[in-house]
């Protein structure tokens, strides 16, 4: 770990100013991912600016009936909040499916969506990785792809030497739920405040895999706003992983179902563990709009969604299993939600 200066300014505005002024500065909140990366050499800042006690820890009602989650509220506090449990079960379930009690007590609302990929190559500074070390190549191609993407990647075996190649996935469970909830991200930056739709916060690798989100240097998440769900909406989060607990998702599904009338519903689906960002399954949603949520209809919708999927060959059979697994998990999740709405 290289040395760095530590600062705890007096206000959020000051913190933003401090980070914006120093190219090698980072924000520190709960630290569960940043401290990990400091030790691994993945993060090498000169200045760490601590905002843990600066941003709001409040969970408050919004005038439109929604909820505002202060950036410093912990994952445990949000998951335990009665309003979240009753109105946004998908979010409580996603949070509780992630990490462990100890980590959730520390990890924050602002930090969780900004955690970085758990790609084993990204985390090992002795291997090539375009995300960590732009232009160095991608060690994951043909390697250990079990936790890697099948959506939003250009090919089954992208060129490992190309600087844009990255098949990493975003590891957050919370973010998948937030994508399905159409959350809004409140951001304070050197240029002032702005609001980003959650679905637009994370990006695909594009030509710069080193960037996970659209946030500019110095921009800080101050809160997440949850819009109210339509009356009668049901939501759930289903995570499929290699252990019963304390494991990242192989695939996960966040779903919100609203019955519009007999034989017709509106569905929102977000997928986790399968792309560089929480993947809103907009194609599947379109196919299902206004129709009955039969298992055949859901399968057809998922077939449309996954038409462009690119399974990544690799060690132990690669990750092609995610494609049928995604469909099966979406079918199961929607089946349970539909049964619950009956």
């Amino acid at each position: 770990m290289k040395p760095f200066a530590y600062a705890r300014p007096g206000s959020v505005a000051e913190a933003v100013r401090d980070v914006a002024a120093e190219p090698a500065a980072v924000f520190l909140a709960g630290g569960t991912n940043l401290v990990d990366h400091l030790k691994l050499g993945v993060a090498r800042p000169d200045l760490v600016v601590d905002v843990r006690t600066l941003t709001s820890r409040e969970i408050s009602d919004l005038p439109d009936g929604g909820l505002r989650l202060g950036a410093a509220s912990t994952n445990s506090e949000v998951a335990a909040d009665r309003r979240v449990r009753e109105r946004y079960p998908v979010l409580a379930e996603a949070l509780l499916a992630g990490a462990t009690g100890q980590l959730r007590n520390t990890a924050t609302t602002g930090g969780n969506p900004l955690q970085r990929t758990r790609c084993v190559y990204f985390q090992d500074v002795t291997t090539a990785c375009n995300k960590r070390d732009p232009g160095s190549g991608c060690s994951a191609v043909g390697g250990y792809t079990r936790h890697h993407a099948v959506l939003g990647v250009p090919a089954a075996l992208p060129d490992p030497t190309a600087p844009e190649t990255c098949t990493a996935t975003h590891p957050s469970d919370m973010a998948v739920a937030l994508a399905a909830l159409d959350a809004q991200v409140q951001v304070l930056g050197p240029a002032g405040e702005r609001t980003i739709p959650f679905a637009d916060l994370h990006r695909l690798p594009g030509d710069d895999p080193s960037r996970d989100t659209v946030l500019e240097h110095g921009e800080l998440i101050t809160a997440l706003d949850l819009p109210p769900l339509p009356a009668g909406a049901r939501s759930a989060y289903r995570k499929v992983r290699d252990r019963a607990s304390y494991a990242f998702a192989l695939v996960s599904v966040a779903a919100v179902v609203t019955a519009d009338g007999p034989g017709s519903s509106t569905v929102r689906i977000a997928l986790g563990g399968v792309a560089h960002k929480p993947w809103r399954a907009t194609r599947a949603e379109q196919v299902l709009r206004g129709g009955p949520l039969t298992e055949d209809a859901v399968r057809a919708a998922m077939a449309a969604e996954l038409a462009a999927a690119q399974p990544q060959p690799g060690i132990d059979g690669g990750n092609g299993f995610k494609i049928p697994l995604l469909t099966r998990t979406v079918v199961a999740t929607l089946r349970e939600l539909v049964e619950a709405t009956r």
């Binding site: 758990r118 084993v120 190559y121 985390q123 090992d124 291997t127 060690s139 043909g142 390697g143 250990y144 936790h147 290699d242 252990r243 019963a244 607990s245 304390y246 494991a247 990242f248 060690i315």
Partner: peptide, 20 residues
């Protein structure tokens, strides 16, 4: 390709947890 264990930590080398 790299010549090492890819999942060389306890997050990725899974040992059974209590819930299993």
């Amino acid at each position: 390709q790299v010549g090492q264990v890819a999942n060389h930590d306890l997050a990725e080398y899974h040992v059974t947890v209590n819930a299993d």
